[in-house]
C-alpha cells in the first residue's frame, strides 16, 4: 500500500514501548501490531484521537503517503 505507518518512529521519538501505548490507548497489542505493520484496512477516529493524545503528535506524523513506482 502507498500509505506508510510511522508509528514505530513516533514510539521511538517518545521513548515509549508498543505495550505501553497499547495499555494507554486501551487496545490490544495484537491490534497495535496490525496497525504498525500496515495490515490495517481502516483506523477509527477514536483510535487516532487516543494515539495522537498519548504520543502528543498529529495524524500526519503517523502516516505518510509514498508514491508507488
Amino acid at each position: 500500500m502507498a500509505i506508510v505507518v510511522n508509528l514505530d518512529v513516533m514510539l521511538a521519538k517518545r521513548k515509549m514501548t508498543s505495550q505501553e501505548l497499547a495499555n494507554r490507548v486501551g487496545m490490544t497489542q495484537a491490534n497495535l501490531s496490525i496497525l504498525k505493520t500496515g495490515k490495517a484496512r481502516a483506523v477509527r477516529m477514536s483510535t487516532m484521537d487516543a494515539i495522537c493524545r498519548e504520543l502528543d503528535c498529529q495524524p500526519g506524523d503517523l502516516f505518510e503517503y509514498v508514491k508507488e513506482e
Binding site: 497495535l32 496490525i34 496497525l35 495490515k39 484496512r41 481502516a42 483506523v43 477509527r44
Partner: peptide, 8 residues
C-alpha cells in the same frame, strides 16, 4: 468481516 477485523 476482514474489513471489520482490520479496522483498528
Amino acid at each position: 468481516r476482514e474489513e471489520n477485523e482490520f479496522t483498528i
